[in-house]
Design a protein around this nucleic acid. Structure first.
Length: 559
RNA sequence: GGCCCUAUGGUCAAGCGGUCAAGACGUAGCCCUCUCACGGCUGAAUCUCGGGUUCGAUUCCCGGUAGGGUCACCA
């Protein structure tokens, strides 16, 4: 059934006409997307997510690198929606992607947007670029570099089974590529019968004369990488007429004038295909930068983050927990460039855009996402944010995640800000604020609605003693006392009740005392905050006000 | 299994032929201290294994081993 004569130029031209009678030429398309008039050294980068509805930390990671690389070089960062798989597409996915990224401060000056798109290199949704792809596929067919393949799913499965049995490389290539240079009459016949087909790259026809068996490219992160040339007749156009990732990537990044493709390491293995495609189309490939993968430890095994298995690593997790966008950005930068942390240490207050990200400084081995580290970075970051801003941030979070608590939190803005600002000024500011959910719990005792006694009495204080101490404290308490006078009273109170006025005295002669001032203040702290661990009592009283302070002291005495 | 990537403490890592092998997180202890947090100090903890090259390898080369990725009409 196959034609054994070597096809000629006429054959390929005829085939192209047969397959794509109405397609434009590559040159027509090319004319619409001229090179960008950017200065030398400007990076054009992109984010190319598929709209599956799941927005991953990896998406943010990728967005952060690409965006910074573009922005810091005076280039362009754009968003392209890779929606060539209609089966996986989810309604509203683009919107949720955009809003999740926006939460973390990532926006796009060019590309797909919630309401259409912006920029001169569109369309920015691959599903809308059909004509463009077809024009170039036609060109490939016309030069004998691609061909229609009518192999059915069953046939392909059978071929694979045979290959597996023979321990051969699976796939359509070489002698298995039955439809390479097939009889044009037969193709016409199948076409007339509307048999489904795909367009495959003719890998053998692509091999550049005299270039050898391997290809070497310089990766922006990894340096030189050598691999065998692609021999697979990969599908470039699917049955539904949409391109596969490989082909769409080649066409789009060429036409959109992408200079640097920064993507995850999982793409490294398809690089031979992409290089083959760029060569076949006679395009100059971009600089590839393959980043390390974000990993997770599962049962002691390190593995790639997976959408399926790790819902807690979706962006929505961080948004729901209320991690501050700046904190997450700081964290990502620390894992992105090993010298970032050092830079941050010597430039504590500087805007992180002053730091220049380099692909050379990016690691090539898998990164374990470390929430401990994130929280630490977060504490530092939040310490540098004003209470006013934090209050806005908390209100925003509460209205999203805890709407029931919104009235409580917004009732008295001054209290909210004061609560968030405790101990944050001075030489050694507190750093105990991590993320909204934690902060909410942390300051909850300032709100009567959420105030409750959570901890037991301290070890050295019995119930009777507690009552006596609180009564005594209530008697001497004066809201207008300064911190020194106030604490003097606590010391006196401790002494009167058999507790050491100074912890050191107690440590020296524990048998002489019931405990020490710490125990006395612990009781007061417990009455006022419901917990044994809280910031300075005096400050808390200032914020609570005299009425509520007395109220809580009395309430506790009754318990 | 083929191909590719990776390999310094539990984690992120500096190092780019000669170092007592940085730093950060975490962890242990101490100090400061009314608790907590902050801060300070101290400690434990790392070059995957063999071969080369070299006067000298954590560093360069080769191999093993381990981990990871990928082998779709998914991206």
């Amino acid at each position: 059934m196959m034609n054994n004569t070597i096809p000629d130029v006429d054959y390929y031209a005829a085939l192209a006409d047969l397959l794509f009678p109405f397609a434009k030429s590559g040159a027509d398309i090319e004319a619409v997307y001229p090179p960008r008039g950017l200065p030398d050294g400007a990076y054009v980068t992109r984010l190319g997510p598929s709209p599956t509805g799941f927005v991953h930390l990896g998406n943010l990671f990728m967005a952060t690198v690409n965006r910074r690389l573009a922005v810091q070089s005076g280039g362009v960062f754009f968003l392209r929606i890779e929606d060539t798989d209609r089966k996986r597409e989810v309604d509203g996915a683009v919107e949720s992607l955009l809003s999740s990224l926006a939460y973390f401060g990532v926006g796009f000056a060019e590309g797909a947007a919630a309401d259409g798109e912006k920029g001169d290199y569109g369309p920015y949704r691959q599903s809308e670029r059909r004509e463009i792809y077809h024009a170039f596929v036609r060109g490939l067919v016309a030069s004998g570099l691609a061909y229609p393949c009518f192999l059915s799913e069953d046939q392909i499965t059978a071929i694979r089974a045979e290959q597996e049995a023979r321990k051969e490389l699976p796939g359509i290539y070489g002698k298995y590529a039955e439809w390479r240079d097939a009889d044009i009459a037969l193709i016409g016949e199948y076409l007339a019968k509307e048999m489904p087909f795909v367009i495959r790259l003719n890998a053998d026809a692509c091999t550049v004369q005299g270039s050898g068996e391997t290809v070497t490219i310089i990766d922006g992160i990894r340096g030189e990488i050598t691999f065998p040339r692609n021999i697979l007749d990969v599908v470039i156009l699917k049955q539904d007429g949409l391109p596969t990732y490989h082909f769409a990537h080649t066409i789009d990044d060429h036409l959109m004038r992408t200079t640097h493709v920064v993507r995850g390491e999982e793409w490294l293995s398809s690089l031979p295909i992409h290089i083959a495609l760029f060569e076949a189309l006679d395009f100059t490939p971009p600089t590839y930068c393959h980043t390390a993968l974000l990993m997770k430890v599962d049962d002691g095994v390190k593995r790639k983050l997976s959408k399926r298995l790790d819902p807690e690593l979706s962006l929505s997790y961080y948004i729901a927990e209320g991690y501050h966008p700046k904190a997450v950005e700081e964290y990502l930068l620390t894992i992105l460039n090993s010298n970032y942390e050092e830079w941050r240490l010597s430039n504590p207050g500087a805007d992180n855009t002053e730091f220049t990200l380099t692909t050379e400084k990016m690691g090539a081995s898998g990164i374990l996402v470390d929430l401990d580290k994130l929280r630490d970075v977060s504490r530092d970051t939040l310490a540098g944010i004003t209470a006013k801003e934090l209050a806005d941030f908390m209100i925003d979070w509460v209205s999203r995640e805890r709407p029931d608590a919104l009235p409580v939190l917004t009732k008295d803005r001054a209290i909210l800000e004061a609560a968030l600002d405790i101990g944050r000024s001075g030489e050694k500011p507190r750093k105990d604020l991590e993320y909204a959910a934690q902060i909410f719990e942390h300051i909850s005792y300032f709100f009567d609605e959420y105030f409750q006694i959570k901890d037991p009495l301290p070890e050295h204080v019995g119930a009777e003693d507690a009552r006596t101490l609180l009564e005594g404290y209530h008697g001497v308490y004066d809201q207008s006392d300064g911190r020194e006078i106030w604490f003097g009273k606590i010391r006196a109170l401790a002494e009167e009740n058999g507790y050491a006025a100074r912890p050191k005295d107690y440590k020296k002669n524990p048998e002489l005392y019931k405990g020490h001032v710490g125990d006395v203040s612990a009781v007061i702290r417990l009455a006022l905050t419901g917990r044994l661990e809280a910031p300075d009592i005096w400050e808390i009283q200032q914020i609570l006000g005299e009425v509520r302070t007395r109220g809580r002291l009395r309430a506790f005495e009754r318990v």
